[in-house]
Amino acid sequence: MGVFTCRGARTRGSRGWITPLLTACLVTLTAVTSHALAQDPTRLTIMVSGTAKMIYLPATLAQRLGYFRDEGLEVELLSQPAGVDAESELLTGFAQGVVGFYDHTIDLQAKGKEVRAIVVFSQVPGEAEVVSTRLPTTVESMRELRGRTLGVTGLGASTSFLTRHLMAQQGLPAGDYTMLPVGAEHSFVKALRSGRIDAGMTTDPTVSRLVRNGEARVLLDLRTLEGTRAALGGPYPAACLYLQTEWLEAHPELATKLARAFVRTLRYMHAHNAEDIAARMPAEFRHEHPELYVKSLAAALPTFSTDGRMPDDGPPTVLRVLATSNANARDKHIDLSRTYTNKFVDQVRER
């Protein structure tokens, strides 16, 4: 049972190569996990769509500050580079929650699955489209990426949703470019350096490192509210904690504890400077360029929420973006009220 009790973040391997024997093992492990939770429901597993990504910093910070422990919870954070893989772990029952993009709650409802965001970390994607400096300087907009290979974390990931929408805005259908799933962080950098991709969408600290090293330049910036409104037409609630609705309704007291830990973390972030917060994070997150990590964090801090609430005008923006590349989201009736709730963060505020 020790594999389920590690308090630090770990990485789940790719699911693409799973053999029948390994599949059987995973089913068994999921059953064991479910049994363990039935015995001790305060032991929770949360999938994070990349623990080192700046946009998901509140997950690791909450753990490092001991806020889960203060709520009587033993939380294990597991890292997946793409949100589409993290949501799969949630649906199998391996994990009780996901720290990922809100747009997956809409995408899953279109597929007949019910999940709900209960804490929203930010109103911006925190992503940027970067282009290799090998490309000519005449490439100044997404339109000039026609015929190019564009990197995304995964097909069906939030970066692919955003890329489809941004290219469609320029009148470019999917056949006018190639999307290549390359993961995030080191695998993204390697793909750009090797020339496998010409451009791609990724987050900080990867964006800042590529720009600093002269390997890429920012083509379109979704790391600020101004840039996000200009490109997407409104705020775009992205990083959040979402849970299966069925689990949420069965365990409201645990959801309240999680919400309280995360809201407390968001408040901590707005009460401390980037240097203080960076010092709390794992050394491997910042060891390559610690000063660059702090600079990137300082720029990102104003975009994080202070209370974890979903903005009223956020979900419609996300649905509009998602409908560009998702026929189900476009053609089926989506009830946005079933994709999130402010109930739990409002309880925290009231207390």
Score class of each variant (00 low, 15 high):
D331E: 12
H272R: 14
M47F: 08
Y236W: 15
S34G: 01
T42H: 15
A168M: 01
L336G: 10
R309T: 13
L210C: 02
S34M: 11
M47V: 05
D85Y: 04
S122P: 06
T60A: 14
R10L: 14
Y236L: 12
A274M: 04
H104V: 10
G314F: 05
G314M: 04
P290K: 13
Q347R: 11
A199V: 15
P316L: 09
R267P: 02
L57V: 08
F161V: 03
L145M: 11
I46E: 04
P173N: 08
G156Y: 04
G83V: 14
M201V: 14
R164N: 02
Q123V: 13
S49G: 09
G234A: 14
G195Y: 09
L232R: 01
H272F: 15
S187A: 10
D331G: 06
R7P: 12
L292F: 14
K53D: 13
S325W: 12
A261T: 13
G200K: 07
T303Y: 02
E87Q: 15
A327N: 05
R146F: 05
A31I: 08
P302T: 14
G314K: 03
S194K: 11
L90N: 05
T224A: 00
R43V: 08
T224E: 02
S208Y: 04
L73A: 04
P205D: 07
N326Y: 03
P252H: 15
G195M: 07
E87S: 11
G233C: 11
L57A: 06
A323M: 07
P316V: 15
R12C: 15
K113G: 06
A230M: 04
G97Y: 01
T202G: 03
A259C: 10
L26F: 00
N213M: 13
D103R: 06
G156I: 07
L26S: 00
V119T: 10
L243K: 07
L145F: 11
T138A: 10
L248Q: 09
T33S: 15
M281C: 00
R148Q: 06
G50F: 02
V152S: 02
P58Q: 06
S160G: 03
L336V: 15
H270T: 14
T45S: 10
K332C: 03
W17D: 07
P81I: 01
R193F: 06
L172H: 13
D85C: 01
L266A: 03
V321Q: 09
L180T: 12
L220K: 05
Q347P: 02
G66I: 08
L166S: 08
L292V: 12
E127S: 11
R116S: 01
T306E: 15
L232F: 08
G227R: 06
P315R: 11
Y102M: 00
G112A: 13
L61D: 04
T23L: 12
L21D: 12
